[in-house]
Amino acid sequence: METTSKGTEDKGISRARFLAGAAALGLAGAVLPATGAQAADARAGRAGRPGRGLTRRGVVYTVGAGETPGTAWDPARMRADVRSIRHDLHANTVDVTGDGVERLTATAAEAAERDLHVWLQPTLGDVPQRDILEHLAECGRFADRLRGQGASVELSVGCEFWLFVPGIVPGETVLERIENLQNGTADPEQVQRRLTAFTAKAAAVGRSVFGGRLGYAAAQDDEVDWSLFDVVGIDYYSYHEHPADYVRELRRYLRWGKPLAITEFGTCTYAGAPQAGGMGWSVVDYDKDPPEIKGNLVRSERTQAAYLTDLLSVFESMGLYGAMAFEFLSADAPHRPDDPLHDLDMASYALTKPIRDRPDDPASPWHWEPKDAFHALSRRYARTC
């Protein structure tokens, strides 16, 4: 269920803090139960197409207001990051996600200028539904103009609507909605009806402004009417010991006969993180000032790199359409090599580690350095350039 901050930055909730709160409420995976029909469809899922590799090999790049002015989206930093995604990571795709039309469109335009395929995914959240749809429409119109100029662009109407869009699950904020799901005050059938209705609205808005391929990024167990979309998108954070188990699980998403894009996959930077799946963030204690890493975790860039490359091998073996590693940078999770208790980068899924010039100063200038996972993906992506 791990995703980008999905529009929460401007509302004062970073993705890390959201997940810490989710962990405190006991959320350990998808909340909506699969129906009997879903289970039957999964058993009937057809196999992938071995040996074809991936068409789109990329990374998620989040735009947002940041937790401090120093970690907010910056045009010059963004341009440098996109150059690195293209020339150092050797990706051919970037998932531009987050909120803020100006941030999203400027980043998408830069990526297109660098000959990257753009998966543009606006994810405004915790505002009225009409505002979310207007935000989507404005981004979609820009994406269509890019496409008209010859850029390779696809539009995703959003991700995991049941969690981030008000009016589907009771609650004004993400954390209130999680709590209502956990304490049983949300009716699953009503939630599913509302989710289906909003997804249809978002698809209709996307179609009305964008003439290219349309997608959506769903949580693994979401029930989605994929007839509305051209591409099936799944945020994938499973852990299995054997590759065959990943293949078996992923086959169910091929039953619609449409391209399957893994819109997010990844893990955090400590031993045992893959087993935590999308809840890897929850090892941070945000009640402490400054926040602390809980437990006696052992930093392991090797663990993160191995998980990413193992999953990439599975996706390639199945001939999936695309895969986008989560994520390029988490600026608000700085790496402190000499202070494991406050090394928030351990709880980060990012391929890079932010390092402050002055570790104890949140306003300090900072830069990022590549992790082992960055280098491992770079080598794999470079083989198929």
Rank of each mutant, 00 (worst) to 15 (best):
D74N: 15
I13Y: 03
R43M: 08
A39F: 11
R83F: 02
R79F: 00
V59P: 07
R15S: 15
R43L: 14
A72S: 12
I13N: 04
A23K: 14
G12F: 02
V82L: 11
A76Y: 10
A80K: 15
A72C: 04
A16D: 11
G53L: 00
I13G: 02
G53W: 02
E67N: 11
T35G: 02
T35C: 00
S84F: 14
A44P: 05
V60P: 00
G70H: 12
Q38N: 05
R86W: 02
A37G: 11
D95G: 09
L89S: 07
P75F: 02
A24P: 01
T71L: 03
R79G: 00
A42Y: 05
V82C: 05
G29I: 03
G53C: 01
G12A: 06
L25Q: 14
R46L: 09
V82W: 04
T35E: 00
R56Q: 11
V59K: 09
T35Y: 04
G36H: 11
V63I: 08
T35K: 08
P33W: 06
R15G: 12
A16F: 07
A47I: 07
R15P: 04
G12W: 08
T55E: 13
T68S: 08
A28H: 12
G21Y: 09
R77V: 12
D95P: 00
Q38P: 04
P69E: 10
G53T: 02
A16Y: 05
T62D: 09
A72T: 11
G21T: 10
G66C: 06
R15D: 12
G66D: 04
G36A: 13
A22C: 10
H90V: 11
A40M: 08
S84L: 10
V82Q: 02
D81T: 10
A23E: 11
R83L: 05
A22P: 07
S14W: 03
R77W: 05
T93M: 01
A47R: 14
R46C: 05
A91W: 07
R56H: 12
A44L: 09
A65K: 14
A34D: 13
T93D: 01
P33F: 01
P50S: 08
A24V: 07
A34F: 08
A23S: 14
P69K: 13
D88R: 15
G12I: 08
G36K: 13
H87I: 10
G29M: 00
R43S: 09
P33S: 04
R57I: 06
D74S: 04
G51T: 09
A80E: 13
G12M: 03
H90A: 15
L54W: 07
T71A: 04
R56E: 05
R79W: 01
R46Q: 14
A72L: 03
D88E: 15
